[in-house]
Amino acid sequence: MRRGRSTAVLAMLIAGAIGVIASTQTWIDVTLDDGAQQTLAVPGADAVPVLTPLSLAALALGAALSIVGPVLRYVFGVLGILIAALVGIQTAQVLLATPVSATAATVTEATGISGTDAVASLVASLSLTPWPAVTLLAQVVLAAAAVFTLVTARRWVSGASRKYRTSAEAGGDAGRPHDAIDSWDDLSRGDDPTA
């Protein structure tokens, strides 16, 4: 089931890449009630602090999933579900409730005022960009890829494909006469064909 592995790997890589890209994009536009009506752009990494590291972890899972054995496939599937759940829950909170705490780091950096109540008193309005929704969709894709991995991992082809195996590993051509090329192959494996 070579396509199963490719599908899971590709989906995890795409979800992780979208998460990394989203962490650098503006998620929330905050207008401050400071007399100047200053507008600040809150990036995804400030709105959801775990977004960047966990998206990088999803990328690493996707890349490693292409080469690991059967046991680690299940481990990576569970890790993928956990990453999708953590990022997805925090993204959904920003998307549905738009808490002032998601903007606190950016507002504090711009104004020097800290504390949730003080920041909340400065915020006149909040508006979301499409990036939280895109990120939430990417987490759904990551979770689906992880579940797909858990369901199909047992049927994935293990090890090197047949075209990269030697004839001895593949159990091939035992009835054919031993020729000069086979002697070179024996030498490559460390066997002495003259013995």
Rank of each mutant, 00 (worst) to 15 (best):
A104Q: 09
K163V: 14
A153H: 07
A60K: 04
A195D: 14
S188P: 00
R155F: 11
L122R: 05
Y74E: 05
D173P: 01
S167G: 11
S114L: 06
A170H: 14
V9D: 01
P177Y: 06
A63V: 12
L56C: 12
A138H: 00
G88N: 03
A102Q: 04
S114Y: 10
D185M: 09
G112A: 05
L150G: 07
L72R: 03
W156C: 02
G80T: 00
T24C: 05
A153R: 10
Y164Q: 13
A160T: 03
Q93P: 01
W184L: 13
I28G: 00
L95M: 14
P132V: 10
A17E: 00
W156I: 07
G175W: 15
V134D: 00
T129Y: 02
R3A: 08
P132T: 09
R154F: 14
V119C: 03
A118L: 04
V87I: 15
V50Q: 14
L13E: 02
E109D: 15
L96P: 01
Y164C: 09
P177G: 09
R73Q: 02
V71P: 08
A22F: 13
A180P: 03
Q90D: 15
I21F: 08
A153P: 00
A60T: 11
Q139T: 14
L95C: 09
L96A: 11
R165K: 14
I113N: 11
D192F: 04
G171N: 08
P43H: 09
V71L: 13
V87T: 10
Q93S: 09
V123Y: 08
A92I: 12
E109G: 15
T149G: 05
T26L: 02
A105K: 15
D117I: 15
S66T: 07
A168K: 12
A97L: 15
